[in-house]
Amino acid sequence: MHSETTTAFRLCGEQTVRTIADTHSALLEYYAAAPNVVFDPTAITEADLSVVQLVESARQTAARDGKKICIAGPLPVSLRDVLVRGGFLNSPEDALFWATP
């Protein structure tokens, strides 16, 4: 389990290039306050590469800042589809990051 003090950042509904700017602003706020980063992707209904890119950006930023980062909860179908087609689950390291609850 991750730190109890960390609340997850919920990714909800449509997470595409149309909505990603809003998600980004909210994430910046969350990131600044959170000791560790937990994404809850379960409520995503529609996803595209922009959300994957955003999470990857957060992953790199967290590595720089020494924060822990993980994905909590099963991947919703739409996100999983993007990851598979984009080859994001092909390396063991990436697969571990994305697909482990």
Partner: peptide
């Protein structure tokens, strides 16, 4: 095909323009 995404060009959260595309394959 063997497909590997290239994520190295993605900027950090602070500088990221989230609608821009920084991905490669």
């Amino acid at each position: 095909c063997e497909i590997a995404p290239l994520t190295g060009d993605i900027p950090n959260l602070e500088t990221l323009q989230p609608t821009d595309c920084h991905l490669g394959w």
